[in-house]
């Protein structure tokens, strides 16, 4: 399939005196999974709802395949969207899909098909009121898939899923993108989607703080290394020679801005006997936190 390009350009939305999002711009490309990440209340849902025509922007625009969502003919056949997991509690899972089906041009067979895809066949004729959060997430994804779309927009799809469910969801969106589809999904936890996404867009307090591939985000991690040696005297001399180095004990040295390989080279040159050499730089999660907490 050929997924559409999702473009968000200069999107701003104010609710009264509150600016929910300001000048948000990014793209989600076909064949890739784009993670839209930020803490709760950062503006993720507002951005996605504006993209999908549920919220009208104060400024800027959002396009899917070159057109705003509400201008698409049969939009649900191009973009499958899952926002909150809201269903009428008295309706069965299958009946819920059947209420949406006419609007997206899906047959009853297609309803059975998507319910099987998300693994809810056994619960298809049960009322949604008794569903767990994980089952609701699956039913929400089934709803998004009903129109056989080539793009998916998923708001916090991993919320409430058990570990097996997260693994399943990961495999599903990876396969969707591998077939050429466009996937834009949001999460407040980088760790939850780290193995799922190709690109990351980080939003905090309504503004985009960072947008790049996941690999480029990894490169932003500040390196650091630590080393343990039985030779306290030589270790102390090495500490003096390296800027920013601190001795956490007479036998343990930590040095910022150096990779373990670089620190190992310095130790070798200084004749320091090395018993242990470890990477202590920022984790991806710490980079994410730093980017979300930095001043605008």
């Amino acid at each position: 399939m050929d997924g559409p390009l999702i473009e968000i350009a200069g999107l701003t939305k104010t609710f009264g005196a509150v600016t929910a999002i300001q000048d948000v711009s990014f793209v989600a490309e076909p064949g890739r999974v784009t993670g839209f990440l930020g803490p709760n209340g950062a503006g993720k849902s507002t951005t996605l709802r504006t993209l999908l025509g549920l919220v009208s922007p104060t400024a800027g625009e959002a396009r899917i395949g070159g057109r705003p969502y509400p201008d698409l003919d049969r939009p649900a056949a191009l973009v499958g969207a899952q926002l909150e997991t809201a269903f009428h509690p008295g309706r069965t899972a299958l009946d819920h899909l059947r209420t949406v089906a006419p609007l997206v041009g899906a047959s009853d067979d297609r309803c059975d098909e998507v319910i099987a895809t998300v693994g809810l066949t056994e619960a298809a004729r049960r009322r949604v009121g008794g569903f767990s959060m994980g089952m609701r997430q699956r039913l929400g994804l089934a709803t998004a898939l009903l129109g056989d779309p080539s793009a998916l927009v998923l708001d916090e799809p991993a919320n409430g899923l058990d570990p097996a469910g997260i693994t399943w969801m990961r495999g599903f969106v990876r396969a969707f993108a591998a077939h050429g589809g466009t996937v834009l999904l949001s999460s407040h936890l980088l760790g939850e989607v780290e193995q799922t996404v190709d690109d990351v867009v980080i939003i905090a307090r309504g503004r985009v703080r960072h947008a790049s591939s996941l690999a480029e985000l990894r490169d932003l991690a500040h390196p650091a290394a630590s080393l343990a040696s039985p030779d306290a005297a030589r270790l102390a001399r090495l500490a003096d020679a390296l800027p920013g180095a601190t001795l956490t004990s007479p036998h343990d040295l930590t040095v910022p801005q150096l990779t373990p390989a670089e620190l190992g080279a310095h130790a070798f040159a200084a004749g320091v006997e090395v018993h242990r050499l470890t990477e202590t730089g920022e984790t991806l999660e710490q980079v994410f936190l730093r980017l979300t907490e930095e001043a605008a």
Partner: peptide, 18 residues
Amino acid sequence: TSEFRHRTIATTLLAEPR
């Protein structure tokens, strides 16, 4: 009103934005 009470209106308007 049940569409608003159960918040299903978003699903409805995603499938039919008009």
